[in-house]
Structures are given as C-alpha cells and as structure tokens.
C-alpha cells in the first residue's frame, strides 16, 4: 500500500538523463513547469508532451513506473477536473439538473488535468533519474551564494538527503508496527475522528521511539566516520559541467522558445 508511492524514488539504470548534472535537471524541471503555465492553446501542450516523451525515452525509466506514482494523486486530480468541468461559466454544451457543462469548462478541465499530469511526470523524472544525494549536491551548489547570508546550505542539504534515505525505512516500519498492533486488536479504520486519532497513539509512539533511536545511531556512525560538517570536505562526485550538460541547456532553451512561441499563438485558439 505505502510502497506504491514512486514520487521521490530513484530508478536504477544508466542513461543520458541519469548522467546529466543535477543542476541541469533541477533548472530544467523548474523551467519546464513554468512553461506549462504559459500556454494558451493545445499546440503548446503538444510541444511539451513531445519534449516530455523524448526525455522519458532517453531516461530509460519504464513509463508505467511513472504512472504508478500518479495513482496517489489521482483523486486530487479528479476533484479538480470535476469542479472545473461543472463550475466554469461560459457557452453551454449540455445541461441537466443544476449542472451545466460549458465549452470553457471542458477546456479548463482538460488543461488542468494535462498540466497536472505533465507536472508530476516531469518532476518525477528528475527524482527517478537523480540519486537524492546527487540532487541535494546540486541544490547545495546552486544555493551556495546564500551562504553569504548565513544560510546553512550544506547542513540543510545533508539533512534532506538523510531524510530521503530514511523515508522508505520508516514506511516499512510503520507497516510492521501497524500489523503488530492490529494483531493485538487495534482498530485503525473505524470510529469517529477523535477515536481514530486516539487509535494512532500505539502506532506513533513506537515509530517515534524508533526514529529517535535511528537518529542517535546514525549520528554516532557519521561521527565515527569523521563527519564534521561541510568544512574541508571533498566530493566523490564533484559537480562539473560536461559537454552533455551544455547540450542539454541548449535543448532546453530551444524547447522553451518553440513551445512558448507556438503555445501563445492566438489565431489557433477557437
């Protein structure tokens, strides 16, 4: 059940996208998401879809793997779509009872669904092809200028990377604790909100105790391996832009130019 969440997971394989500098992927994802909000006609989305398709192909991550990650937010998507479908005023198509579907409603609903889907797949490509360590490395380097303002960039990056490493472990543990308590007759599923919140105590206490224990152990293990913050640390995988990264930036620029140009062409809009 909890294992279905693929957002934030890394998919092990070797591809051009995997080998790209994380800064390219971070910047690229950000720009890609922004571009999605610029389009005013279907052509823009088509361009974005083609671009996304190429990147997916290049990443060698099976498409079904990404779709699985979407299941978790399917419900959210559905609600947004339904709301927009029925509540947007405009030219009427069909109408029954108190609900009306309009041309504008259909367009908005479709746009939002497509946008959301692309947004999620787009950002999941980044996490699927970049190890969290690499990702935090990228962020650390991109945000380095902030150190001037006393922002503890290295520490925050390290914290994030550790958190990411422990999420799957703690999820598995939650599953086990839940089972252990269900075996003792605990009921997590019925009753009103207060009853349910109370039922969580036998789950949360062991989980927190275990998390603190792990934190304590990990701190000890890190210290014993001579970790003492970012000062004087070297990198096993230092970030240096390669030729492929420069090519990627070019492709990205090209994509932005093309998609926004065609995406904002007014005459195509009915």
């Amino acid at each position: 059940m909890l294992r279905d969440i693929t957002l934030g997971q890394y998919y092990q394989t070797d591809s051009v996208i995997h080998r790209l500098d994380p800064r390219v992927k971070l910047g690229g994802t950000l720009l890609y998401i922004i571009s999605l909000f610029f389009f005013s006609n279907p052509l823009g989305y088509l361009a974005a879809a083609v671009f996304l398709g190429i990147v997916i192909k290049l990443s060698r991550v099976p498409f079904r793997f990404m779709v699985r990650g979407m299941r978790a937010i399917l419900f959210l998507m559905l609600i947004t779509v339904v709301f927009n479908l029925f509540l947007t005023p405009g030219r009427e198509i069909v109408s029954f009872w108190k609900l009306t579907i309009t041309v504008e409603g259909v367009w908005t609903a479709v746009t939002i669904a497509v946008r959301l889907a692309m947004l999620i797949i787009g950002s999941s490509i980044m996490t699927l092809t970049t190890t969290p360590n690499n990702l935090t490395d990228g962020m650390e380097k991109m945000l380095r200028p902030l150190r001037v303002f006393k922002v503890p960039v290295h520490e925050v990056a390290m914290m994030m990377s550790i958190a990411l490493r422990f999420i799957p472990l703690l999820m598995e543990e939650t599953d086990k604790i839940m089972k252990a308590q269900i075996a003792r007759g605990a009921d997590f599923e019925s009753g009103n909100i207060i009853k349910r919140a109370k039922a969580l105590v036998p789950l949360l206490v062991p989980l927190f105790v275990s998390a603190f224990r792990r934190a304590n152990d990990l701190a000890m293990a890190m210290e014993s391996r001579c970790y003492r913050g970012g000062e004087g640390r070297t990198k096993m995988k230092p970030l240096v832009y390669q030729r492929r990264d420069r090519v990627a930036y070019l492709c990205l620029a090209l994509y932005l130019a093309v998609s926004i140009t065609v995406g904002r062409l007014v005459w195509l809009w009915i």
Binding site: K176, I177, K179, R184, V201, P202, P206, V209, R213
Partner: peptide
C-alpha cells in the same frame, strides 16, 4: 508476536 518488541510496546 512480531520479531521486534519495540514495534508494539508503547
């Protein structure tokens, strides 16, 4: 009874 008692004592 599961493997780790830590998973149920609260």
């Amino acid at each position: 009874v599961f493997q780790y008692p830590e998973h149920q004592l609260f």
